[in-house]
Write a protein that binds this DNA or RNA. Structure first.
Lengths: 341, 341
DNA sequence: CGGTTTTCTTTACGCGCGTAAATTTTATGT
DNA sequence: ACATAAAATTTACGCGCGTAAAGAAAACCG
C-alpha cells in the first residue's frame, strides 16, 4: 500500500495508467474490460486502495443497483430479522440494499421515502406502518419507484404484495387449540396498528363458527408499539375481571402473548398444557423471542425464508423488466408447538 | 399542488422567481435570507413540493450535517433501542443521522465504514463489534472522520469513549446478590464477542474476593450472536452437571440470562426469590425484554438516556470544534429489582 | 435625498462520477 | 501481412447541487 492517497477516479486512473472511462467501466463490471487491463487496474488497486464514491456513482446512472428496504419498526426483532434476510438476498443478487426504519412514526415513514428517492433506487421493499400510513404519499412514491409491499398489505399498492396468510394462520392455530382442549378466547388490541390484526380476528370468528363454539374476543386498550406492555396491562385487567370464558387464549400476535405471559406469572397463574396448568396461551408470528419465553410460546410462525425470498425475487424480477399485474401472495405459516399451549 | 413536477433546484428557482444560489442558501438555513424572499420561496414550496437531493447537496459541501450511527447488530433490541435514542438526539440537534448495522460481521463492519465515507459525515457514533473488529481499518477511519466510540471500548480510538461502567455493574449487582442470599456463580460465554464481558468477569472475581467468597465462573461454549440459545444450551449442560455451587447465578448479560431462564423452565427448576424457588438468576444490561421474562429478570440496567446523551453531546461538541483529549466516560448502571433474584 | 449596508442576481467553476461519440490502439482471423 | 473486429483513449457534456466573486437591486439611516 502506497502513501499517496487517491481521492477520486481521475487520480486513480492516472496511477493505474488506464483512462478514466475505462476504469469506470471496470467498476461497473470487471469483466467488461480486456483481461490485461483488468490486471493492471487490479494491481493498482492493491497498491493504492481506492473505492469509487457510491453516491457520485448513482448520481448520473440510468439504472442503479440500489434497493431500499423500509420497515415500520426496527426495534421489533421480527422486522429486524426479516430485514436482515431481505438485505442478504439483495446482496446475493448483486444489489446494494439500504435499510430504513419509520420507527413507528408515519411522518418519519414519508420522510424516509423522500430520502430514498435521492438514492435513485432500482426498487424498494417496503413494509408499511399500516393503518397510520399516509396513503396518498405512499401511492405517489409507488408511482415513481418500483415498490414491492410486504408484511402488511395496502390493497393494489405498488408492484405486488407478499406476506403471510393471516386467515390461514389463525384458522390453523385455532383448529389446533380446539382439537386439543377448550376453544380459545381471542386476545387483541382494540385499535391495532397493523391491518393483519383484523384478518386474524375475522379468521378466529370464522373458525369458531365452523367448530360450533361461541367466540369470545377480548379487545384491550393501548396505543403505539409497546405491545408487550399493552399485553401485560390488558392481561392483568382481563384476568382480574375474569373475562376469559375458557382456559385457552389465542393472542393476536406474539408480542401481546409475551406480555400476557408476564401478567399470568405476576398473578401466579400457571400457563401450559400440563394437568397442573390453569390456562393455555398461544401467539401468532413466530417472533424470534417466542422460543425463550417461560413457558416457550406455542405459535404459528411466519415462513420468514419463503416470504423474504418471494418478496426479493418478485422485486428483482420486476426490476429486470418482468413486470406482472398486481397480485397478492400470502404464504402459509407453520405451527410451532411448544409448552404454552 | 400544481401538476408540473420540479426535478431540480434550477427548475424550482425558476418557478419561485428566486435565483438558484439564493434558494440554495434558503435550504441551508431559511433564516439566512430576507423575510420577503423566504415567503416567496415557501409559497412556491407549498405549490410545487420540491426537495433538494440530499446526496447532491453533500457532494460539494465543506461541512455536512450528516451523522453516521453504526451498531454491531440491529437484531438485538438493545442496540436498536440505543440507536433510536441516538438518532433522535442527532435530529433534535439539527443533524441527519443514518443508521447502519454490521450484522455481527467484521467484514460488513468495514464495508459499512467505507460507504459511510462517501456520505462525508460530520461525525460518526460507533459501537464496534469488539473482539472481531478489524482494528487497523477502524483506526484508519477514525483518523479521517471524527468518530466517537460507544458501548464497547477500543482503547484510545477515536475522539473518546462513552459507555457503561461494567465494573460498577457487576460489583453493584454482586453486592446485592451477596447481601440477599447465597453468593452468585458467574455464567458467561467462554469466548465473548464483546470486551465488556471480560470486565464483568473480573469485577465479579473482585467482588467475591471482597466478600470473602469462593468465586465460581461457568464459561460455556458458543460462537456468534445467538446469545439466548447459547445461554439455553449452556444452561442445560451446567444444570445437568450440577456445576452451580450456589443457588444464585449472575449472568454476564441479559440475553444469556433469558436463555438460562428457559433452560431452568425446561428442567422444571423454579426461579425466583420466593421460599419455593430453587435458584435465583440475575442478568446485566437492562435489556428491553428483561421486563417480560417469567419471572421478570432482576438486572442492572444501562442508563440508556445518559449514555446516549453523553455520546451525542460529545460528538456534536467535537464537530463544533470543542475537541478535547481522548477520554473514556463510563456511566453507572441502575439496579432493577424484579422477581428473578 | 444621497450614501451605506444588506441582500440578490449573474456568472462561473467545482464535486466525483456516468456516458456518449469520435478516434486511435490493440487483438483476431485467414 | 492485411483487413476486420474489439477494446481503449480522448474529448466533452451531464447529474444536482455548493460556493465564490462581482455587480445590481433593495433596504436602511440620518
Amino acid at each position: 500500500m502506497s502513501e499517496t492517497t487517491i481521492k477520486n477516479m481521475e487520480e486513480f486512473s492516472a496511477v493505474s495508467g488506464i483512462s478514466r472511462p475505462t476504469v469506470s467501466k471496470y467498476f461497473h463490471d470487471p469483466d467488461s474490460v480486456r483481461q490485461s487491463t483488468r490486471q493492471r487496474i487490479e494491481t493498482a488497486l492493491e497498491k493504492y486502495d481506492y473505492r469509487p464514491n457510491i453516491f457520485a456513482m448513482n448520481q448520473n446512472r440510468k439504472l442503479t443497483k440500489n434497493v431500499g428496504i423500509v420497515v415500520p419498526l426496527l426495534a421489533d426483532p421480527y422486522f429486524a430479522e426479516i430485514a436482515r434476510n431481505l438485505e442478504q438476498r439483495c446482496i446475493d443478487a448483486g444489489y446494494r440494499p439500504t435499510l430504513f426504519s419509520a420507527h413507528g412514526d408515519p411522518n418519519l415513514e414519508i420522510e424516509v421515502l423522500e430520502n430514498l428517492r435521492a438514492l435513485k433506487p432500482a426498487g424498494v421493499l417496503m413494509a408499511p406502518l399500516g393503518r397510520a400510513s399516509h396513503r396518498a404519499a405512499l401511492e405517489k412514491f409507488c408511482d415513481d419507484v418500483p415498490t414491492l409491499i410486504f408484511d402488511s398489505s395496502v390493497d393494489e399498492l405498488g408492484l405486488a404484495f407478499v406476506g403471510s396468510d393471516n386467515f390461514q394462520f389463525t384458522s390453523h392455530i385455532s383448529d389446533y387449540l380446539c382439537r386439543t382442549g377448550e376453544p380459545p378466547c381471542f386476545f387483541e388490541m382494540k385499535t391495532p396498528a397493523n391491518p393483519n390484526a383484523h384478518r386474524r380476528r375475522q379468521s378466529y370468528l370464522n373458525a369458531m363458527e365452523a367448530f360450533g363454539h361461541e367466540p369470545q374476543v377480548i379487545s384491550i386498550d393501548g396505543e403505539g408499539w409497546a405491545f408487550e406492555e399493552i399485553g401485560r396491562l390488558g392481561g392483568h385487567e382481563a384476568l382480574s375481571n375474569k373475562q376469559f370464558s375458557t382456559n385457552t387464549i389465542l393472542c393476536s400476535n406474539d408480542r401481546l402473548a409475551i406480555g400476557l405471559l408476564t401478567a399470568c406469572y405476576e398473578q401466579g397463574i400457571k400457563v401450559g398444557r400440563g394437568a397442573d396448568c390453569a390456562i393455555r396461551v398461544a401467539g401468532q408470528d413466530g417472533h424470534p423471542h417466542s422460543r425463550y419465553t417461560c413457558p416457550p410460546l406455542t405459535t404459528i410462525s411466519h415462513d420468514y425464508d419463503a416470504v423474504s425470498k418471494h418478496a426479493a425475487d418478485s422485486l428483482l424480477a420486476a426490476i429486470d423488466g418482468h413486470v406482472e399485474p398486481w397480485k397478492s401472495t400470502r404464504i402459509e405459516g407453520k405451527l410451532i408447538l411448544r409448552h404454552s399451549a
